[in-house]
Simulated scan of single mutants.
Amino acid sequence: MPLGTHVLSRFGRVLARTLSARSAPAPALDEAAVAAGVVASTTALICVVDLQGRVLSANPALLDLTGYEPRDIVGRLIFDTLVIPEDLVPAQASLRQAALVGTAGQVEADWLDRHGGRLRIHMHSSVLRDQDGEPRAVAYVGTDVTQQRQLQTELRERAETDALTGLRNRAAMLSALQTALLPSPAHRGDQVGLLFCDLDGFKKVNDRHGHLVGDALLIDVGRRLLALTRPPQVVSRLGGDEFLILTPAATPTSITQLSDAIERDMRRPFRTRHGAITIGVSVGAALGHVGDDPTQLIEQADRHMYGVKTTARARTLRAV
């Protein structure tokens, strides 16, 4: 008996016994037909592959979702159709493991549709055996969770994004800072740089020109800071007119150069609906090491920033 027929027949026998136990006597069920009907009508995505990864069958729900015709996928390797390129090696290893030990499990991964689009699939996989108990194929039963994952990503982005500027917010910066301060063999001995930027003269802008102009100015400040940095650096708005910049693998020289560049760039006039506006910025710096407390590093940069601001005010008063 072919493997597919054997699997459907076995599934049909189980379902037939269940139906018989719950209902009055009825004509005998065609077990294979019942199993085939369930597979054809379910919304679950079902794909059966042999131990080399060649697709033996794909149910209508899977075909509808991916846009494939049966001739496009049945008989071809799953690695050439559904599996995304970056998952090729782990997918092949998982199939070999299933063939070797005779068990499989559940996993969540991206599948490709016919046009190259990506679908997030949560799937359970089971090893199918022949009449002698030998592993012969693996059945993947999946659920499309693409929309759920996209929604989760959007919600997470909203939770980590400053609503006004689109920069990372305080919570996101704390998370990034915690990660940067974790021990890592690749960055052993590296210092983590943090800049605390506080705008000078921003309150006067708000008082004179209104909050709409002030908000527009904060957005432009964020854009300028982003233009001065590159990943893996992280720019965030702490709140009000305060901004933080995280610089992994920093040195005293690199952090000083960035601080100087920010001060120069912020002195350039900002174009607003009320004309050109000039402000300044006080920048405090701190260098941390693996294992340091993120909050204390922020406080250290904050104290340095206030020292810079106080010194600048003192110079201004002496000049007057």
Rank of each mutant, 00 (worst) to 15 (best):
A91S: 15
P183E: 01
E157F: 06
D302L: 03
T251Y: 04
R318Y: 02
T295D: 00
R96F: 09
V205S: 09
A176Y: 02
H115Q: 09
H115Y: 04
A99P: 12
D293F: 00
V320F: 01
K203D: 05
G53Y: 12
V145S: 05
E160Q: 13
R208Q: 14
L19T: 01
Q233T: 10
V145I: 14
P135L: 15
G214L: 14
L297A: 02
E157I: 05
L112E: 11
V55I: 15
G37T: 11
L88H: 14
R136P: 08
Y306K: 07
A44S: 11
A40R: 13
Q148L: 05
L8M: 05
L297D: 00
Y306D: 06
K309L: 07
K309V: 07
D130N: 12
Q152W: 07
A276S: 05
Q131E: 15
R10Q: 09
D113L: 10
D110V: 01
I277A: 04
G210Q: 03
E134I: 14
A139F: 09
G75F: 06
H209D: 10
Q191D: 03
S41D: 02
G75W: 10
V141Q: 12
T278V: 11
I255K: 09
F11Q: 10
V14I: 12
V107Q: 11
P27Y: 06
F196V: 03
R118Q: 04
L164A: 08
L194M: 08
G275E: 02
R237I: 00
A171D: 04
L217D: 14
H211G: 05
Q178D: 02
V221Q: 13
R156D: 01
T18M: 12
V7D: 01
T229W: 13
L167R: 13
L177H: 05
R120I: 05
R264D: 14
T43V: 11
T229M: 13
A24G: 13
P232M: 13
H115K: 04
L181H: 05
T66K: 03
A276M: 03
A319M: 06
L182K: 13
G67D: 02
H209F: 15
